[in-house]
Amino acid sequence: MTEWLSNFFLSKVRAKNAATLLLCIVGVFALWPWLNRLAIDRDIPSDYIFPLAVLGILALSYLLISVSVKGFRILKVFRGKYSRKIEDKKQQEEFREKVRVSLPALNKETLGILKDLGESEQKIDIRHKGVVWLLKENLIKKVLQTSATEFVIKIDQNVKELLCEFEATEFTKVVEETINNLQENQRSFLDLFWSKDVPYGTRDSGKMMPNQVYSAGYVLVDKGLILLSRITEGRNIEETFTLQDEAESYMKSQIYRTPPQRRSLIICPKFVRGSGASGGGAIGNMPRKI
C-alpha cells in the first residue's frame, strides 16, 4: 500500500496538485456546515464565507500533501539505505564464511603471505605464487603500484580478524597436543619453571644441565610454547626461556595445578653438557633435538 501511494504521488508532476484539489473538495464538503455556523455566529458577511473557507482549506490541503510527499520521499530513501545495509551485511557474512573455510586449506606459502600482511602492508611481486589467487578472491587488495609487477598490498580487515582467530585456534591445538604428549625430557625442562630452585644449567646452581633436557627446551621453543631470547656479552652467553601465556595457562590448569615459580628461566650454556659453550664439561656443538 505504501509503495502504491508513493508511486501515485511521485510518478507524475500533476499528481500533487490533483491530490491537493481532491483533498480540498473533500474538506469543503466535510467542514462547510461547521464553518457556515461559525461565520454566522461571528457575523461574518455571507459573501466572504465560502471564498475564505475554500482558500483556507486549499492552503491546509496543500500543506498536508506537501508534508506527505516529503515524508514518502524520506521513507523511500530510508528504505533504500536500510536495504543496502542489510545486503552489505549479508555479503560480508558470506565473505567471512568463505574465508573461514578457505584458511585451513591454504598451503604454507600462501598462508605466510597473509601472516606477513597481517603485521603491515607489504610490497609484493604479483607473480609470486598465491598472490594472484588472493587478489582474485579479495583476501588482499592493491594499494599502490611501484613497478610493472610490484604493488604495495594490504590485507582485508575481515581476513585479518579471521586469520588471528585461525592462528589462535591452531596454536591452541598445538599447545594441547604437545602438553598432552610430553616426553620425559620436555617435562623435565618445564618442571624448571615450577620448581622452587633451578637445580642445574645456571650460574647460581653451578651444575651441568643434561643435554637432552636442554634440547627438549628447544623443541618447546620450536612449537611456540616457550619464547627464546639471547644476551651476549663478550664470550658470555645467556639464554632466556619465557613461558608463552596460553601454554602457561594450560599447564597450570591441566598439569601443575599451581602458578609457576617463575615465568622466565635464564640458562647459561656453559652449564649445559654438549651446548658447545666453552667452560667446564661442555662438549659437542649444538643442542640436539629429541
Score class of each variant (00 low, 15 high):
Y82E: 15
S68F: 11
G56K: 00
K70M: 12
T178W: 01
E121T: 11
K98S: 12
Q183C: 08
T2C: 03
E161D: 12
Q91A: 12
W4S: 12
E93N: 13
L23I: 10
V219G: 09
V198W: 01
F50V: 04
F151K: 06
I237R: 06
T240D: 04
V198Q: 01
E167A: 06
Y218V: 01
A168S: 13
Y200L: 01
E248Y: 03
E170C: 06
V101T: 13
V67C: 05
Y82P: 04
L265E: 07
S229C: 05
F193I: 01
L227I: 09
Q244A: 10
L114Q: 08
P259Y: 01
L21Q: 04
I113A: 05
K173E: 13
K129E: 05
R262V: 03
P287L: 02
I74G: 06
T242I: 04
F50P: 00
V143F: 03
S253L: 11
F50R: 00
P33E: 01
P45N: 02
A105E: 15
E3N: 06
G27L: 01
V213R: 00
S61M: 02
K223N: 07
Y218H: 15
G234Q: 04
F78M: 10
K12T: 07
Y214W: 10
F8L: 14
V221F: 03
Y250R: 12
E93H: 07
E3G: 01
Q244M: 11
I290Q: 15
K90A: 08
G274N: 12
S147K: 02
V131L: 07
K85Q: 14
G280P: 07
N158A: 09
V99Q: 05
L58R: 09
E93L: 15
F29D: 08
L135I: 07
L22G: 14
A39N: 06
L139Q: 09
V219Y: 03
V131D: 07
T232I: 15
G234S: 05
L22P: 01
D245A: 11
E119T: 15
F189W: 03
F8Y: 11
L162C: 02
N181A: 13
S278K: 15
I237K: 07
R273F: 12
E137Q: 14
E119A: 13
G201I: 03
S6I: 10
I226E: 02
E239R: 12
D191Q: 05
L192W: 00
I40T: 13
S120N: 15
D156F: 00
E239G: 04
E119M: 12
L60N: 08
G56F: 00
G71M: 06
N285T: 14
V219Q: 14
I179D: 00
G206R: 03
E87M: 12
V198I: 14
K141W: 07
L106H: 07
I40D: 09
I44A: 02
Y62M: 11
K141H: 13
E137R: 13
N180A: 14
L10W: 00
E3S: 08
E109C: 07
Q212G: 10
